[in-house]
Nucleic acid binder design. Structure first.
Length: 505
RNA sequence: GCCGCCUUAGCUCAGUUGGUUAGAGCGCUUGAUUGUGGAUCAAGAGGUCCCCCGUUCGAUUCGGGGAGGUGGUACCA
């Protein structure tokens, strides 16, 4: 008995956390990137591109675990020389390398923007992928916090230029030095190696106020906390008096910037670094006021904690202020749309001398998801193609010539390239979301005419018709004109569609 | 990473108390309605019931392991 031959058929699947992106999203994404580019250039940043991967050692000491280059980042060893290279996990590390390599010839401060894919080898989640797009602006070589203030303004302007309304988003700022200050005044050394882990635990607890509330944070500052899944998170084991200090800090609020500064002052003023951080935020506040960026756009929020090994001064995070629901009606949290801060130590890795730098990054993929949820990404039908039907397969040349003349007139158009009948061709055009269909069958040809049908209008009309005969005979939403008028009629009908589109938009 | 839940047709999901031909709705393909995408009617295609190992005469169903997804948590440059 013959055995069934087993042919290996790979499943057409993607590695987890990766996805294909289709035309509508590419279109929307292209628009978003163009808008961001406008703002970044308006602010005077210059463009830069760097490669997708670099030597692992250049990307850095900020790998989570230096012994295993594959943790967190995608890395591979080059055959010929055994050197490790890694896909970039952000655009800042490559910038630091670029600046260090070209330091002497760059204008300082060096202000550049950059966009591209970055990759992270970690657990994907909803709206969180292993390949995604960032859009960054950074000032390298500027030690004044004016650079940080500028990035906050750029962040706010960028989000609005993408279509978010004022009030839909906030840029929340804090300062690493203030966090150090409050640690110090609670009796925790902000620098000493031996309590590094306790320090991290405390700061991470502060970061979680928005999710866990004061109660959860209190547990995390004390003995620890057990979550709903039964998992236990170790706490910082602080004394009650210390915990109280942090609770007061958390209540410093985030409404008016001046009030926040006022509330923080008594908490951190005993600490030199706290005083410094406060002074920096005060200066940033002045600059924001001077630029008319009020607290409805940029706030101070003492609970913002970011990149603890990384950021050295002001830090900021862009967040959405509203909640949305997914298809199943569940509440969705979008996390932050972007963030940044001052990283005075990054370039120093290469140079040995400190080079102050600060940056801001927008997570474009996540911003896209947010705009989509907000319904700000209605499909743009103005770009839909005209499809020329092939009514007689023997005369393809005639139809090709029509397509050619449409294209010559700058009209996006295509010849139906399949071999099916008219019905299937219209179905194809429908699914392509075509705008118009050009029909030249026997009848038209005999009279030297062409028929042009508007698919959107047709589908509107079909809703009111239940009788097939009527539907077919009404020849809904189409015009028959002299063949010479093809181009002008198509242009007219497209123009009519476009004004409809604009009115409804 | 840790804890829970899920995985059957392209999609959403039934179902098999372990038994021979595994179903529905929608979608898809083709056809009918003399050259019109909707509606209707007819026919058809499409499944290693996530994968591997085990128990069993027999596993899509039971057990173990794994993968993927999902929710929470941790981490997040």
């Amino acid at each position: 008995m013959a055995k069934k031959q087993k042919t290996f058929r790979p499943k057409p699947r993607l590695p987890k956390g990766l996805r294909d992106i289709r035309a509508d999203e590419i279109g929307a994404m292209t628009n978003m990137l163009a808008r961001l580019r406008e703002i970044y250039e308006l602010y005077g940043f210059e463009a830069l591109e760097t490669p997708a991967f670099e030597y692992s050692e250049c990307l850095g000491k900020f790998l989570p675990d230096q012994d295993r280059p594959n943790a967190g980042v995608f890395s591979f060893e080059e055959d010929e020389d055994g050197e490790w290279v890694s896909l970039r996990y952000d655009l800042t590390a490559p910038l630091a390398r670029f600046v260090a390599a070209n330091y002497d010839e760059l204008p300082k401060p060096f202000r550049r923007y950059q966009t591209g894919h970055v990759w992270r080898n970690e657990k994907p989640g909803p709206g969180r992928f292993r390949q995604f797009t960032q859009f960054d602006a950074d000032s390298v070589g500027a030690d004044s916090v004016a650079a940080d203030a500028e990035l906050a303004m750029l962040g706010a302007d960028s989000l609005e230029h993408l279509g978010l309304k004022r009030g839909d988003y906030l840029i929340n700022m804090n300062n690493r030095k203030i966090l150090d200050g409050v640690l110090e005044s609670a009796g925790i050394d902000p620098v000493a190696e031996e309590n590094a882990s306790q320090r991290l635990t405390v700061l991470r607890a502060i970061d979680k106020l928005d999710r866990l509330g004061e109660e959860g944070v209190t547990y995390l500052l004390g003995e620890g906390r057990k979550d709903e899944s039964g998992d236990f998170t170790k706490g910082a084991n602080l004394a009650p008096a210390q915990i109280d200090k942090f609770l007061v800090y958390l209540r410093a609020g985030n409404e008016a910037r001046g009030d926040v500064l006022g509330a923080l002052e008594p908490l951190v003023s005993e600490s030199p670094s706290g005083r410094e951080g406060l002074a920096e935020l005060r200066e940033i506040d002045d600059l924001l006021e001077a630029g008319s960026f009020k607290a409805d756009r940029v706030r101070f929020d003492p609970t913002i904690v970011r990149g603890l090994d990384y950021y050295t001064g002001p830090v900021m995070e862009a967040e959405l202020t509203f909640e949305t629901k997914n298809e199943e009606g569940e509440m969705v949290r979008f996390g932050s749309l972007g963030g940044g801060g001052r990283y005075d130590g990054l370039v120093a890795r290469f140079k040995g001398q400190p080079v102050p730098a600060t940056g801001f990054s927008i997570g474009v993929s996540r911003a896209y998801a947010a705009l989509e949820a907000l319904g700000k990404l209605e499909a743009d039908k103005r770009n839909a193609p005209v499809v020329v039907l092939v009514m007689d397969q023997e005369q393809k040349g005639r139809y090709q010539a029509m397509v050619q003349s449409l294209r010559g007139a700058g009209i996006k158009s295509e010849l139906y390239l399949g071999s099916s009948g008219m019905r299937a061709q219209l179905k194809y055009a429908d699914r392509r979301a075509a705008s118009l269909v050009v029909i030249e069958g026997e009848d038209e040809q005999a009279e030297g005419k062409v028929t042009i049908k508007d698919l959107d209008v047709g589908s509107e009309l079909s809703k009111e018709i239940t009788d097939n005969k009527e539907w077919r005979e009404s020849r809904a939403a189409q015009k028959t004109v002299g063949a010479d008028d093809l181009i002008s009629t198509v242009k007219e009908m497209l123009a009519a569609r476009n004004t409809d589109q604009e009115q409804s938009a």
